[in-house]
Simulated assay, not measured.
Amino acid sequence: MKPLFLLLLYFVPPVLYAQQDTAYRNRVEFLIDTIENSGALTKHEIKRGGIVYGCWLYKNSLFKIKKHWSEKTAENNVLENDLQYYLDKGKLIKAFEREVLLVNGNRDDVSVWSATTYFKNGQLYYITSLGHGKTEDEQYDMEKETLKNFQQLKAILRKQLKQQQK
């Protein structure tokens, strides 16, 4: 009986945690999907120096911000970058980052890296990463970099929106 009890103690907590984790991500995705399909979003887009910035307002609150840009590398490749951040009540709940490397600018020869992160109470809660990129580097701090990029982009967009309103 005792070995069975110990076995249960070993396996049950991770399963319960995984269920909580999935439930939180499902709630975030449901919220995002509901708002995006509500028809109540107001989109603002700003193009500056080859960079496209975007923000979406929902009921006069910031809901989503994004940044898209391309750059040429020293090896004559093209690197396309996308950043997207989703907010709920002013707090970051989800971030998506993607890099697409076009070898010699050719869309048939690509390398893709992406990461989706979920935040809860201002802290990284869950991450999933696909492809070869930043998350393979032991020194890369996904939480720190995501929050830094988010704050910088939010500040840029607020400044640009204020200038447009003048």
Results as ranks from 00 to 15, higher is better:
residue 113 W to H: 06
residue 144 K to E: 11
residue 40 A to M: 04
residue 78 V to N: 02
residue 78 V to C: 04
residue 130 L to S: 15
residue 87 L to G: 00
residue 101 L to A: 01
residue 62 L to F: 05
residue 68 H to G: 09
residue 115 A to M: 15
residue 2 K to E: 15
residue 156 I to S: 05
residue 108 D to M: 14
residue 46 I to G: 00
residue 14 P to T: 07
residue 133 G to T: 06
residue 110 V to W: 02
residue 104 N to R: 09
residue 105 G to F: 05
residue 89 K to Q: 14
residue 53 Y to M: 04
residue 118 Y to R: 07
residue 56 W to N: 02
residue 140 Y to V: 10
residue 22 T to N: 09
residue 145 E to R: 09
residue 103 V to I: 15
residue 32 I to V: 13
residue 132 H to A: 13
residue 80 E to N: 11
residue 160 Q to H: 10
residue 153 L to S: 04
residue 53 Y to K: 00
residue 155 A to R: 07
residue 153 L to C: 10
residue 76 N to V: 07
residue 120 K to T: 07
residue 11 F to M: 06
residue 143 E to K: 02
residue 39 G to P: 00
residue 90 G to L: 03
residue 100 V to E: 11
residue 16 L to D: 02
residue 23 A to Q: 10
residue 54 G to K: 02
residue 94 K to D: 03
residue 130 L to Y: 14
residue 124 L to E: 09
residue 132 H to C: 00
residue 39 G to Y: 01
residue 156 I to V: 14
residue 16 L to K: 06
residue 30 F to A: 11
residue 146 T to N: 04
residue 72 K to V: 10
residue 138 E to Q: 12
residue 35 I to N: 01
residue 137 D to H: 11
residue 74 A to M: 11
residue 79 L to M: 12
residue 57 L to Y: 14
residue 46 I to A: 01
residue 91 K to M: 10
residue 58 Y to N: 12
residue 129 S to C: 13
residue 100 V to G: 03
residue 86 Y to A: 01
residue 21 D to A: 09
residue 85 Y to W: 00
residue 3 P to Q: 09
residue 6 L to P: 00
residue 97 E to L: 12
residue 3 P to G: 04
residue 79 L to N: 02
residue 152 Q to R: 10
residue 47 K to R: 08
residue 42 T to K: 11
residue 50 G to V: 03
residue 9 L to V: 12
residue 29 E to Q: 06
residue 144 K to W: 14
residue 144 K to R: 13
residue 64 K to V: 11
residue 150 F to W: 14
residue 76 N to E: 13
residue 1 M to A: 15
residue 100 V to W: 02
residue 128 T to G: 13
residue 92 L to Q: 01
residue 49 G to M: 03
residue 10 Y to G: 04
residue 74 A to W: 13
residue 140 Y to F: 15
residue 160 Q to S: 09
residue 154 K to W: 08
residue 51 I to A: 01
residue 128 T to V: 15
residue 68 H to S: 10
residue 136 E to C: 07
residue 135 T to D: 15
residue 83 L to G: 01
residue 41 L to Q: 03
residue 103 V to A: 05
residue 60 N to L: 07
residue 115 A to F: 12
residue 141 D to E: 11
residue 113 W to Y: 14
residue 158 R to K: 14
residue 110 V to N: 06
residue 30 F to H: 04
residue 111 S to F: 05
residue 108 D to V: 08
residue 164 Q to H: 04
residue 100 V to Y: 04
residue 47 K to M: 06
residue 82 D to G: 04
residue 128 T to H: 08
residue 60 N to Y: 09
residue 119 F to W: 11
residue 47 K to N: 08
residue 75 E to V: 03
residue 112 V to R: 03
residue 92 L to I: 07
residue 151 Q to Y: 11
residue 22 T to F: 10
residue 108 D to K: 14
residue 31 L to T: 01
residue 44 H to Y: 09
residue 88 D to H: 13
residue 24 Y to C: 04
residue 133 G to I: 08
residue 24 Y to W: 08
residue 19 Q to K: 13
residue 69 W to L: 13
residue 70 S to N: 11
residue 24 Y to E: 09
residue 149 N to G: 08
residue 149 N to L: 08
residue 23 A to E: 10
residue 1 M to Y: 11
residue 50 G to D: 01
residue 48 R to F: 01
residue 8 L to R: 08
residue 53 Y to S: 00
residue 159 K to R: 15
residue 125 Y to Q: 13
residue 29 E to S: 09
residue 111 S to V: 06
residue 63 F to H: 03
residue 104 N to V: 04
residue 39 G to N: 02
residue 126 Y to I: 02
residue 133 G to L: 07
